[in-house]
Design a binder for these strands. Sequence first.
DNA 1: CATGAAGTGGACGAGATCGACCGGACCATC
DNA 2: GATGGTCCGGTCGATCTCGTCCACTTCATG
Lengths: 157, 157
Amino acid sequence: MDEIDRTIVNLLRADGRTSYAELARRVGLTAPSVQDRVVKLERNGIITGYKAVIDSEAIGLGITALIGIIPDNSADHQDICERLRAIPQIESCYFLAGVECYQLKVRVPKMADLERLIHRVGAIPGVAQTRTTITLSTKWEDRQQPLPSDGEARGVD
Amino acid sequence: MDEIDRTIVNLLRADGRTSYAELARRVGLTAPSVQDRVVKLERNGIITGYKAVIDSEAIGLGITALIGIIPDNSADHQDICERLRAIPQIESCYFLAGVECYQLKVRVPKMADLERLIHRVGAIPGVAQTRTTITLSTKWEDRQQPLPSDGEARGVD
DNA sequence: CATGAAGTGGACGAGATCGACCGGACCATC
DNA sequence: GATGGTCCGGTCGATCTCGTCCACTTCATG
């Protein structure tokens, strides 16, 4: 993971369809060696995939909401997690340090779907309470910050 | 936006580097016509970009936190929004219906960075209070749900 | 019957990929 | 301390695939 790798990662984060030839021009190597680096980055789990970014409203998922989950004492977290994973509308799931031990980001076409979803989550054994917040607008999402250099990341303290 | 477009979008969401030739084989068209469709999807704002998915821990952003913002009465939301946008560590920013009118998802290398970040956000004019929750683990993130068909999305009620 | 959207097929240039080769770093041996 | 083997990362060139442009066809619509 040197400076060239970081440049490649940054370029691919900005445009996941950049060709190896183009990457090669940008970093001053040839296409095969860039490909070699990318394959290694993928194998080492640094690049975990490539995605097209879709406008969720345009595909009929106009409603985004955040759902916090407060568990009861009997909660079996592995079971809860599996049941949450089985709900396709939950796009992200974070396990938190706090009273609300999970936060879910969900997307649905209509309010009625959100209502059904909240009831479904609330019915999971071990879930004492849920707290849902509608997002009025998404200012931005999944923006990339510049990769920290080794020094910044490892801590120079 | 017919069934073929939906298939293309689903394939590109799953793997943003799928070649036009491969897409063509999957949907039973030729490469030029698939390319034509993809260009239209991009122009119509349905596909807004392509990104490599990076393991944030692997690049030194090991800490993820959610920050809620409670504004005061004098809050100028446009100004707040601009100042938030200028902070690179804020990867996502949602405007919410609730007491906490923004929620931020932030990533930093170390706890000290998070502390600095919280102070910076708290110092923005119009921000009365912030509430930060550390994520202990990300169960999953930005998972794709199957595209709703026209019927489901538009509402058949 | 004219028209335009959508697809096909062919052609050509660009990109991806593979094997062979090169050079420096590292290390054990003489 | 010099020698030679080995590994790693890169280049080069050949070949195959892919992307892209264009002319032509088809088909539904007005």
